[in-house]
């Protein structure tokens, strides 16, 4: 049958004769287990090297939710660690207080850091903000992702500071990044499209890095499956309310029909970024009159939100 591969025949564009576990539709390559793992790890290493995400002597703290992306991030960084001169790794986990969801992922995070013998700290919304996300969202479910995003941003910064880190690594993957590009285009928010989370705080926050930004969600799932590290974890119950959910489905269909769509969105952002040369994100950064954190207005989003919780 045209376009298909029998179980006994070596597919075209294979690197070896071992059975393929992944077919990259964009390049046409079929990769066996070992070639796939090596390909993912070398692409992450190249992202780190090419963008100077980690430099000798860094203390990288991983924002470890225990879900698939941050789990894969930890595994890959631990694997690359010997090649990263004088770099230390640790992890912290945010417990937002989402009943029926976070319990499983926190358990998973706990097991992982024990296995890799990493220092692990916990930080919770009740500790930081006086209540769980479930309580804050009662009657405000449609705003879930906006509210959680503002609170999590603060929690991430506090967690990285408490860990004494020089870099904060998050598990954002290619799908996440492409969705963000598309969402900001849909919102008409060009400054936000170009603003990098690690560059908009005038050195006040610990820089964030996204080593998995060119690894697709599917590749991450395959990587975990091949390491026996895949866990059937629940999806966030509030995800159904998010614009991101709609964008995710739309992009999934486009990527399926037109392989490379997500990567092209990332390339578009890079090209716009190069042409704008920072001019669109040059609005002066101010400091919140209440908490002193960097923000674009007089009062930061977090302080405004706190008044409504």
């Amino acid at each position: 049958m045209a376009g298909t591969v029998s179980s006994t025949k070596t597919p075209p564009w294979s690197l070896c004769t071992e059975p393929a576990v992944f077919h990259d539709k964009r390049t046409g390559r079929h990769l066996c287990r070992d070639h796939f793992i090596s390909d993912v790890e070398s692409r992450v290493a190249e992202t780190i090297r090419g963008r100077r995400l980690i430099v000798p002597g860094d203390h990288v703290v991983i924002a470890l939710s225990g879900g698939k992306d941050s789990t894969a991030l930890l595994m890959i960084l631990a694997r690359l660690l010997p090649a990263l001169e004088g770099v230390t790794l640790s992890a912290f986990t945010i417990d937002e207080g989402i009943h029926g969801y976070r319990e499983d992922t926190i358990r998973s995070a706990d097991e992982l850091v024990k296995k890799y013998r990493l220092t692990h700290t916990m930080i919770s919304f009740p500790d930081l903000f006086g209540g769980t996300l479930d309580v804050f969202l009662e009657g405000r479910e449609p705003e879930a992702c906006s509210i959680c995003g503002i609170l999590r941003r603060k929690a991430l910064n506090v967690g990285a500071e408490r860990a004494g880190a020089t870099k904060l690594a998050t598990g954002h993957n290619l799908d996440d990044e492409a969705q963000s590009v598309f969402m900001n285009v849909l919102r008409g928010d060009l400054p936000r499209l170009l603003r990098d989370s690690g560059s908009d705080s005038q050195g006040r926050f610990i820089p964030r890095i996204k080593p998995l930004m060119f690894i697709s969600e599917k590749e991450i799932a395959v990587y975990l499956m091949l390491h026996g590290a895949w866990a059937d974890l629940p999806e966030c119950p509030y995800a159904v309310h998010a614009l991101r959910g709609e964008v995710r489905r739309m992009l999934a269909v486009l990527e399926s029909k037109h392989p490379g769509t997500m990567l092209h969105l990332m390339e578009s952002r890079a090209q716009i970024e190069a042409h704008c040369d920072g001019s669109l994100v040059a609005e002066p950064m101010r400091h919140c009159a209440e908490c002193g954190d960097p923000c674009s207005g007089e009062i930061c989003q977090l302080c405004n939100l706190k008044k409504t919780l």
Binding site: M1, G3, T4, V5, S6, S7, P11, P19, A20, V21, F22, H23, K25, H30, V222, M225, L226
Partner: peptide, 9 residues
């Protein structure tokens, strides 16, 4: 029990 690609038979 083994992962397969989308074009496998």
């Amino acid at each position: 029990g083994t992962l397969v690609t989308e074009d496998a038979l």
